[in-house]
Design a protein around this nucleic acid. Structure first.
Lengths: 363, 363
DNA sequence: TTGTAGGCGTTATCAG
DNA sequence: CTGATAACGCCTACAA
């Protein structure tokens, strides 16, 4: 008893130590466990004592120590959200969707930007594990599917957004990437295009691989010869798209249509085209992916596939929290099918004639 | 000893328990403390034993439990980042700035969206405290300065971005809001405008209050009569700006110029103006705040004040981590002065004449 | 309804 | 250079 008192005095000399459950118990004249019960909303406690405990709690400005709780409970009510880059307009809504449902379930979100760097991604995943994160959502993941599966095997709950991991213990919010890229090519083919370029994203990206696959299949199915020199890789940014397009503009038989991995690249490409003195869509048609907010503001407005970003984030978080709570995956895979939003960057080639139709097709 | 073995067996029946420092110690044939020393990079350990420990660590796929560490160390290497809404393009870059320096210092970021709801904000702040966050960054805070000071008094490290808290223990990355709003009004006055409206943000926002103040002072200093009916409040969104502008368009003597609390509102306002059959800037000039990416893509491109968003996030994080490490504030206040980026939404009234000049002033 | 004892995984204080 | 042991704050059995 004496040592305890000394100890307390010693510490409070230097710092104002935050109150513990023990202090609350003492002040309320009850046991520690009773306080714990009150904190956890156990019904097995008298209203009277509950009041006393509550009074003590805010008299002492007590806040339960989540670290201590996480230590014994082995759950932190924290999830990790690993994305490529919050600065890419594709992600904020996803993040918001995740955060909203997390918050609703009393979870917190640790945000991690990987810049599509697999090592950074692994590093973050480890950190989340160490922080006892209850689960991880991977969006824009650039590590291998096998690594993700390995995580799941270790008992870590993980949900992948726009990835292609197939494993019963890995939740997936997938996107019909191949089908849509195929659709884009068909759409362009119908308009008479035969030289269609693909501005590719990261080779480590499964969604990119899927789109590329759809792009290739689209050529086959529409009887268009595939010219691999029309596939050029770039970073997932405006700058990347600009650079890629610049290359594309310099090849002898330049493309008449562009499918870009994402809107940012598509926008960059349009800028390059303009700078080259050409016009979109008259000289070159452009189609993107994502439908970020900017897409409807460019000149001309960008034709693109609309991703239900907020919903994807929501679903992923619901899935993850479901896994955490039930320790199982109810529905491990969900496929989102983005819709083609036709704006003016990819009008029909005889665009002047059909202008009215085009305008009606907007929004 | 027996109990221990039984215990382990019992648990491993149900789950694969992750290895602890104790397991590593046993496997490496050293004491727990030695493992701890290796983990923390203490030099007081033989290279030989270090090797053995390291081997044991990855043989067991050991990951130190940050919760346990946080419990004893009273620091979690986690900071809370409380923002209004990641979906508002003003925030992603700030968040990125924060996350980058946090990561560089081995800190993690818990992201919280408050939607400008003070209660939600308080709730998040409490959560961060409970999670033993080492500090908090508030961006777009809507709680009172006194509450922030109270936090600091309790020993919680806090940095406010774009807020007006004055206290030696609160870090602040401030913005010269009043001065810039004043400049905007002066700029408009010089162009001949006398009916300048202000689309206001949240009344709880200190940055809004500052801009409003500058708006008012700008009227005084330029000899323009102030008409309070030209100040209308709205949410910090396109929808908010649209709604506010719609009101403004319906008053008898409608304004000829708009200063909006942020770009999103300004863009919404331009949409309302267009929908009303009027033209920007000929009929109504518009100036925003922030210079979000969209701003340069609108028709016409938006004149606005460029916020160094990434840098603001960086500085805030550096300040916070500095406070955490040194337990003091070296430079508690830093003022950022956004620059007016003149685009076409606010050309000179005789804009046709000076078109060349305007274009030169653009980016 | 309430209280007591022991442990969660790590670090820190002392000895050796 | 290394090791035993007591915290850190909370929760869960079990007892009362």
């Amino acid at each position: 008893m004496t040592t305890l008192v000394m100890h307390v005095r010693f510490l409070s000399g230097g710092f104002e130590l935050s109150a513990t459950i023990r202090d609350v118990a003492r002040r309320a004249g009850v046991s520690i466990k009773t306080v714990s019960r009150v904190l956890n909303g156990s019904p097995r406690v008298t209203e009277d004592t509950r009041q006393r405990v509550m009074a003590a709690i805010d008299a002492l400005d007590f806040h339960p120590n989540a670290a201590a709780r996480a230590l014994v409970l082995r759950k932190s009510r924290t999830i990790g959200l690993v994305i490529a880059d919050i600065t890419n307009p594709f992600f904020p809504e996803i993040v918001r969707g995740v955060e909203d449902v997390a918050n609703r379930h009393n979870y917190n979100v640790i945000l991690c930007n990987t810049d599509e760097n697999p090592d950074k991604e692994r590093c973050y995943i480890n950190l989340i594990r160490e922080k006892q994160g209850d689960g991880i959502i991977l969006a824009g993941s650039r590590i291998g599917a096998d690594e993700v599966v390995a995580l799941a095997r270790k008992g870590i709950h993980v949900v992948v957004i726009n990835g292609d991991v197939r494993h019963p213990r890995v939740g997936v919010v997938a996107v019909a990437n191949e089908e849509r890229a195929h659709e884009a090519v068909s759409h362009l083919a119908r308009m008479g295009h035969t030289r269609i370029a693909y501005i590719s994203g990261s080779p480590m990206s499964s969604s990119n691989a899927e789109r590329l696959q759809g792009y290739r299949r689209g050529h086959d199915d529409n009887g268009i010869p595939l010219d691999e020199s029309l596939v050029v890789q770039a970073g997932p940014t405006r700058e990347g798209g600009f650079a890629a397009m610049s290359c594309l503009l310099n090849i002898p038989a330049r493309p008449t249509a562009i499918l870009a991995y994402n809107d940012l690249q598509a926008i960059g490409a349009m800028e390059a085209i303009k700078e080259h003195g050409l016009t979109v869509p008259r000289d070159i048609a452009v189609i993107g992916f994502d439908d970020i907010q900017l897409a409807s503001f460019t000149t001309p407005p960008l034709t693109t596939f609309r991703m239900p970003k907020y919903e994807m984030g929501m679903r992923a978080a619901e899935m993850l929290i479901g896994m955490i709570i039930s320790r199982t995956v109810r529905e491990s895979r969900l496929v989102v099918d983005p819709e083609l939003v036709i704006r003016e960057s990819c009008g029909y080639r005889q665009s002047v004639l059909t202008r009215g139709t085009m305008a009606a097709g907007r929004r």
